[in-house]
């Protein structure tokens, strides 16, 4: 139920931001669209803790600023490597073990790795990620496992089945 509420709230916000009009007709059309979308989402059975990871929301406020800062640092590293040319890069593929226990946690970790320039997740098999790293610095940064720990703290693991569908 709480996920349906989250979906509805998100859609209302999206409609109001995109339209910016508060006429009765437009608002009625918006409500109709939102009801339709929520109904279709329910029929598709996609409204659950995976599509709406609201249990991460509070901790995400700590994680995402940290991730942004990491991205800025990695960007400077990669930009310098590009400017210096071929001698500065050391491309290699490495294997990383993810310690997250839920799929959402792993997806967050894999996407965080890819979003950080210098490292790209090529392949995911269970908790084993194949990562392509551009520079030595980016490979070492990932190898230290700091991001892994933070994402594990972020995911706040819940047993499957205890979460209702919507």
């Amino acid at each position: 139920m709480i996920h349906t509420l989250a979906l509805t709230a998100g859609l209302v916000l999206l409609w109001l931001l995109l339209s910016g009009y508060f006429l009765a007709l437009i608002l009625a059309l918006g409500i109709a669209s939102i009801v339709l979308v929520v109904w279709i989402a329910h029929r598709m059975d996609v409204v659950d803790h995976e599509s709406h990871p609201i249990h991460m929301a509070a901790k995400g406020l700590i994680y995402f600023p940290w991730l942004m800062w990491e991205i800025v640092k990695a960007n400077i590293d990669v930009a310098l490597a590009i400017i210096k040319g071929k001698n500065a890069i050391a491309p290699k593929t490495m294997r990383v073990t993810a310690s997250q226990r839920s799929d959402v946690g792993r997806v967050t970790y894999a996407n965080s790795i890819t979003l950080t320039p210098g490292t790209v997740t090529v392949y995911v098999d269970g908790d084993m990620f194949l990562v392509h790293a551009l520079t030595k610095g980016s490979a070492d940064g990932l190898g230290s496992g700091d991001m892994d720990k933070r994402v594990t703290a972020l995911e706040g693991y819940v047993e499957h089945g205890t979460e209702g569908v919507g």
Partner: peptide
């Protein structure tokens, strides 16, 4: 040099 490295540039 190759497509995997260029993805990092696109990431920037």
């Amino acid at each position: 040099p190759d497509v995997y490295c260029r993805m990092h540039a696109a990431g920037i």
